[in-house]
Design a protein around this nucleic acid. Structure first.
Lengths: 207, 207
DNA sequence: CGCCAAACTGAATGGCCGTTCAGCACTCCC
DNA sequence: GGGAGTGCTGAACGGCCATTCAGTTTGGCG
């Protein structure tokens, strides 16, 4: 309101954050530059001044958000010693929680928007690919750590991480779309079961 | 071209098919009524005349396409006797093939568009939910058939079908988005491996 | 044939929104 | 103080596009 924030990089971030919020709330299609400007507390003209075109702004906002979320998650995981605990936490973080936390659900909404954009924009497609590769590498890394520590069974880490990531995507999607057959807790426990069964750690399985 | 098709229901279908093609090619956001009209060989005014509003047309087109695809798949499966063959075929059909067949890839593109729409439109969300429920039921049905015939191990059919459907979603998505780490054949064989391992059918597993 | 309803259309209409632009305010440096 | 550069803005501009409308064609039917 009264504050008059200047200085380019700070402004940039403000606008990106506003863009992320608007996209999550209204969807890519219905996002207007003026909405973003309003939420950022400036004018539409300034938004264009910083990003030149709406297209570039939207692309940058999507990757900005996903990148930030990844770094946050990654940072949290580095504080956990055991591989099985790290994997468990990773699953908990990535599956949407039962209570509709705007933070996590918003993150998944942005993924869906990112996917639809990546279908038509080669540039976005490559950025998405890089984000997902990094994510799967992180899982694979945990698996290999656990295997070296003797916590996990000796299965192929690359295959497992791809399967696990895909399963999380598929289940989280259902939860975010509000499917009444797929509650958040059910999704989470399915993923955890798969991980425990395949890597053979944690609670005993009763088959 | 020269033909002059009339009669309401036929026209309706023509327009819906045109809409589906345009959406798959350009995406929901960039789909114009005039594009659809042009492809259907009529005027934009007629399109509105039939569907009243663009919104309704798009929603109807998306569910029309997915419904048609499901029925087609379902019909093909009914001709297969053994449950394991049926499940194998279901997986083959739903995973995008290596050669970019417009038919299947288009189907997946439409799913992504449907998801992003379902995020904001309760009506679309419910329709999507119904489509997915039917799909998972189809899988569960096959599993139960196979179990009764002694082909499959006795695991929980509902859980398995949810997990399998989610895995297919997640992997097919990567393929359709052009991720270079996830080829179509790799995705397909991962899904088949999971199914065979969990249900214990087909080729021997070498763990 | 003549009449009616329904299918269909081309040409407006009206609103929206990305982008441009001319200029204001502020700060820094000489 | 004044000149310059930069952050910033309000007010156009211009194009696009869903929707409307007034009117034409078509086909069936008495």
């Amino acid at each position: 309101m009264t504050s008059k924030p200047k200085f380019t990089p700070e402004r940039r971030r403000q606008i990106l954050e506003a863009a992320v919020e608007v996209i999550a709330a209204k969807g890519l299609c219905d996002t207007r530059i003026s909405d973003i400007a309003e939420r950022a507390g400036t004018s539409a003209a300034l938004v264009i001044y910083y990003f030149h075109t709406k297209d570039r702004l939207l692309t940058e906002a999507l990757t900005f958000a996903e990148d930030r979320f990844y770094l946050q998650t990654f940072h949290e995981l580095t504080n956990i010693a055991s591989a099985s605990d790290r994997l468990t936490r990773l699953i908990e973080i990535s599956c949407p929680p039962e209570v509709r936390s705007d933070e996590i659900v918003g993150e998944w909404i942005l993924w869906v928007e990112l996917w639809s954009r990546a279908l038509r924009d080669e540039d976005v497609a490559r950025k998405r690919e890089a984000l997902d590769r990094r994510w799967r590498s992180t899982i694979a890394e945990i698996v290999r750590d656990g295997q070296q520590a003797g916590e996990f069974a000796d299965i192929d880490a690359a295959d497992f991480s791809l399967r696990l990531a895909a399963l999380i995507d598929g289940l989280a999607l259902q939860v975010v779309l509000g499917d009444r057959d797929v509650t958040a807790t059910r999704a989470r426990s399915l993923v955890l079961d798969v991980a425990r069964r395949e890597l053979q750690f944690g609670e005993a399985l009763t088959p």
